[in-house]
């Protein structure tokens, strides 16, 4: 269930939590090493990828297991252009060329799938297969795409002649993530977003209201491809290295787990889940070397059983419960006072 909170309503506990989280991310470079800043920058790009998938899965009900393909395409396009075609401005590569290529691919795939009315598990499986094909292609083309060794030595991007430092790249990634979140928050809260929820609830019903659900799904799928392309492009410039797994089904399915853990159909849950699990991954994998992935699986199972709306949904329920208790207690006290006065 989509439970989007008001993005800018400062009176709600969820908004306060979002602002505290944002301030923590803004302040992070002041307290960690440059290496950790770069690491967190990649987390932010993965969070943007998660956001793009949550838009499709959380708001139209279509589970895509192949979005890493579009993330990886953005990364590979950026790697090739930044290394071999220096005439194209870096910023244009990241924010125009890479997302346009990813958008064209999602548009083509989406048109094919939605025209054939492919949905449910067939949609998930088809997108998964696309991801596997893209990963295989990247692995096979040794000369052009570097094969399984990938492409390394991708330079950081330059903006008006200045090469971005790790910290600058971090803030750029953070700005893009926050901007994307605010944009999507507005989108899903609009009339357009209500139609999306209608499609998720019952496609047939929404169709006989007069909505071309194929068109809506195609718009959202393509928009999510644009976001995935930008995320992959930024990842390439931050990490400096791209390889076939960035296009593959392992990453595609991992992101779905991040979203499920964070809270599907909330947007903020996708961001939270992506950042939380990657942080845990990097810290706990040093301690629990062979058991971390098992721990992730157990966490996923626990969330599915205990908190099907994800951690964000669980926290929201807890806050609402506390608020209800406080209101109830307050009323009882007023009532008790009234009895005394009487």
């Amino acid at each position: 269930m989509a439970t989007k909170d008001a993005a800018v309503n400062l009176k709600t506990p969820s908004s306060v939590a979002k602002i505290v989280g944002l301030l923590a991310l803004v302040a992070l470079p002041l307290f960690v090493s440059e290496y950790q800043v770069s690491t967190w920058s990649t987390y932010l790009t993965f969070a943007l990828l998660a956001l793009s998938i949550d838009l499709v899965w959380g708001y139209t009900g279509l589970l895509t297991l192949g979005h890493a393909a579009f993330f990886g395409v953005g990364a590979y396009v950026t790697a090739k252009l930044l290394k071999e075609v220096p005439v194209v401005p870096d910023i244009a590569v990241v924010f125009i060329v890479a997302p346009v290529v990813a958008a064209l691919l999602t548009l083509a795939l989406g048109w094919f799938l939605f025209s054939a009315d492919v949905k449910g598990s067939y949609f998930a499986i088809t997108t998964l297969i696309v991801s596997i094909i893209f990963e295989s292609i990247a692995g096979e083309f040794v000369g052009f795409l570097g094969g399984f060794n990938g492409i390394y030595g991708i330079p950081s991007i330059q903006v008006v002649g200045v090469e971005l430092t790790a910290t600058m790249s971090y803030y750029l990634a953070l700005g893009v993530l926050v901007g994307s979140y605010l944009f999507l928050n507005t989108l899903v809260d609009s009339a357009f977003g209500r139609v999306l929820r209608g499609i998720r609830g019952n496609q047939e019903r929404t169709e006989f209201f007069g909505y071309d659900t194929q068109q809506y799904r195609l718009i959202i799928f393509t928009l999510s491809g644009v976001m995935a392309g930008v995320a992959g492009s930024m990842y390439a410039t931050i990490d400096g290295f791209v390889s076939p797994p960035l296009l593959g089904f392992v990453l595609s399915t991992q992101v779905v787990i991040w979203i499920a853990v964070g809270g599907r159909g909330t947007l903020i849950g996708a961001v939270f889940g992506a950042l939380l699990i990657q942080y845990l991954n990097s810290t706990l994998s040093d301690v629990l070397i062979n058991y971390w992935e098992m721990g992730l699986a157990l966490l996923f199972i626990a969330v599915v059983i205990g908190a099907p709306r994800g951690i964000v949904g669980l926290l929201s329920d807890i806050v609402e419960g506390v608020q209800a208790t406080l209101v109830s207690t307050s009323r009882n006290e007023i009532g008790a006072g009234g009895e005394v006065d009487d």
């Binding site: 209608g198 209201f209 007069g210 909505y211």
Partner: peptide, 9 residues
């Protein structure tokens, strides 16, 4: 939600 006419958004 019922007020759509054709593909108006």
């Amino acid at each position: 939600l019922g007020s759509a006419s054709g593909d108006q958004l």
